[in-house]
Simulated scan of single mutants.
Amino acid sequence: MSLYQRDLVLNDYHPKVFAYYFKTWEKHDMAFHTHKEVEIMYVIDGTCTVVAEKKSVAMKKGDFILLDSNIPHRLIVDQQSPCRMLNIEFSFIKKTGCFPSIKDLANQNKKFATFLSLNRPYIVLKDTNEIYHTLKNLVLELDKKESDKDIMIQLHLAQLFMQLARITAEEMKETHTHYQANVYVNKTIKYLHHNYDCDIQVKDVGQAVNLHPGYLHRIFKQQTGSTIMEYLTSLRMEKAKMLLADTEIPVTEICFYIGINSRQYFSALFKKHTTQTPLEYRRAFEQNIAKFRS
């Protein structure tokens, strides 16, 4: 049964673990295979690669992958880096006993209900230490011989599902935030390339992309590694180099073509970026062309 099968939220089912094991893999290249059960592969130590749906996923300590049932996958472990993993395979059976069903849990927890609707063949997540703690407790309970251990197993599984839902929701939120940041950064870059010849301030860019200047400044630095004004200055210097090399525009007028209204400031800025004055740059370029032609 798929983790995302509609019947899970329409009727009463309990999760049931069918297999679980610790394993240290050394130099291993597994063939593609599938499971009828949903599988969690947790990296305790080392590194490995999991290939699922023809996509390779590099994993390291603290990473884990949740594979839906019947998804072809394989494990690859490099000879130089053994990988210790905990694998748990589970499916769903008709509810028995008094513990809430998957449907009951989804009705009480919005994030879990959303999680059950994702319909992803696999999800790769980074643990915050809570998942491994829950998995270890689950394994310890599964190993016990007591006849009344089922309620504790269900408790641990329910805890696991709630944690998976919360981590996935946070990951999706971060992904969305990152996507939105990229959109604004790309708009900013496009604006700068179209308006570098104008007198531009950060507030002008913020107004152009419809975002608060302070927030735009922060996400632009995070995404590009430079501030908006640093990026604009680098862009202007590249345009100045092009104009000096490929046109006959007087050196004293170049600054006005790139949005800098001071010849002295432009000359100082250009030398800072190229170690040459604008005039030295043009002469050096002309000399190189002359040598090439001769």
Rank of each mutant, 00 (worst) to 15 (best):
M1N: 00
L3W: 05
Q5N: 15
R6L: 10
R6S: 15
D7F: 07
L8E: 01
L10D: 11
L10T: 12
N11W: 11
F18I: 12
F18Q: 12
A19P: 05
Y20K: 02
Y21F: 13
Y21A: 11
F22N: 15
F22Q: 12
W25Y: 15
E26V: 13
A31W: 11
F32H: 08
H33R: 09
H33V: 00
H33K: 07
T34Q: 11
V38A: 04
I40Q: 05
M41N: 14
Y42G: 01
Y42C: 01
I44V: 11
D45F: 04
G46F: 03
V50H: 00
S56K: 14
V57I: 15
V57Y: 14
A58R: 12
M59L: 07
F64A: 03
D68K: 03
S69R: 02
I71E: 08
I71W: 04
H73L: 04
L75Q: 03
L75Y: 05
I76L: 13
D78Y: 07
Q79P: 07
C83K: 01
C83L: 02
M85N: 06
L86M: 01
L86V: 02
L86N: 03
I88D: 03
E89I: 07
F90S: 03
F90N: 02
S91I: 08
S91E: 11
K95F: 04
K95D: 08
T96D: 14
G97K: 00
C98E: 12
S101P: 03
K103L: 00
L105Y: 08
Q108T: 12
N109M: 04
N109I: 02
F112Q: 09
T114Y: 10
L116S: 06
L118C: 05
N119K: 15
P121W: 10
Y122G: 01
L125W: 05
L125K: 01
L125M: 00
L125S: 00
D127K: 04
D127P: 01
L135I: 05
L138F: 02
L138S: 03
L142H: 02
K145G: 10
S147Y: 10
D148W: 13
D150N: 14
I151P: 00
M152D: 09
Q159G: 07
F161E: 09
I167N: 06
E170A: 09
E170S: 09
E171K: 10
E171Q: 11
H176I: 13
H176P: 00
H176E: 09
T177W: 12
H178T: 12
H178M: 13
N182M: 14
V183L: 15
N186R: 15
V202I: 15
G206Y: 02
G206P: 02
V209I: 06
G214P: 04
R218V: 11
I219P: 01
I219V: 01
K221P: 04
K221C: 02
Q223A: 15
G225Q: 03
G225C: 01
E230I: 02
L232E: 10
S234N: 15
M237N: 15
K239C: 07
A240L: 05
L243V: 03
L243H: 06
D246K: 10
E248A: 14
E248L: 14
P250Y: 10
T252Y: 10
G259T: 12
I260F: 03
N261C: 07
N261P: 06
S262C: 06
Y265I: 14
F266S: 06
S267W: 05
A268L: 14
K271F: 05
H273N: 08
H273T: 04
T277K: 05
A284S: 15
Q287H: 12
Q287S: 13
S294M: 13
S294P: 08
